[in-house]
């Protein structure tokens, strides 16, 4: 099969709510999660260094012995983060029941709309955060589960994030041998 565009997974996780009512993100590629306005509204930080254009990640304010201007507050030389135009996100709800074959609790979810936006806190950088918003059929903001337990809303939110790397566009080259051009001429 010919891959018109290579998709590289850069983050995946499961967003749940702990017993204290705080959001928790597990998996890979995500550093932390917090609430924004309250119920159903979450801000997720990507791991530092996520993103194919993140060539200067982690560098201090001095490069090769020279002070570098335009340094971002966290010490990253841009461009940092991911390109929203080349990134694909999948959000999937897990059902609500730990006894899913009991007809009274069929393992459904009340979450009807799952939406997100990329957040770029620093002008000139790529997106380093993902804001996720969950609502029920009445358009009320809703958590993906109860505090530490599944409830009628579900038992967690699965998140997948891919970035696209086209073999025809080496300026957006991703990391790894699969993404290297076959030939390179000066």
């Amino acid at each position: 099969m010919y891959d018109a565009t290579v998709m590289q997974p850069i983050a995946q996780g499961l967003l749940t709510i702990d017993a204290a009512g705080d959001p928790v993100i597990t998996g890979e590629g995500f550093a932390s999660v917090s609430r924004v306005t309250g119920t159903g509204d979450f801000l997720i930080d990507f791991d530092m260094g996520t993103g194919t254009s993140d060539v200067g990640s982690g560098s201090p304010s001095v490069v090769d012995g020279q002070a570098v201007s335009g340094i971002f507050a966290d010490g990253i030389i841009g461009p940092n983060g991911i390109d929203p135009a080349r990134t694909i996100v999948v959000l999937t709800m897990r059902g609500n029941s730990t006894a899913p074959l009991v007809p009274a609790t069929p393992g459904s979810t009340t979450i009807a709309t799952l939406s997100f936006e990329f957040i770029s806190p620093t002008p000139g950088e790529g997106a380093t955060q993902l804001r996720v918003f969950l609502r029920n059929a009445a358009d009320a903001a809703t958590d993906p589960m109860g505090a530490g337990v599944a409830n009628v809303n579900g038992s967690g939110l699965e998140i997948l994030v891919w970035t696209l790397a086209s073999a025809d566009n080496v300026s957006q080259q991703a990391i790894g041998p699969l993404y290297q051009p076959s030939f390179s001429f000066p």
Binding site: T92, M93, L101, S108, A137
Partner: peptide, 23 residues
């Protein structure tokens, strides 16, 4: 309006061999 997935434990120490989809 809503879709959900659950992974059902079927075989001890092996893992879920069935996936349930609820719409």
């Amino acid at each position: 309006a809503t879709k959900a997935v659950l992974y059902l434990t079927d075989v001890p120490f092996v893992g879920a061999t069935q996936v349930m989809i609820v719409t």
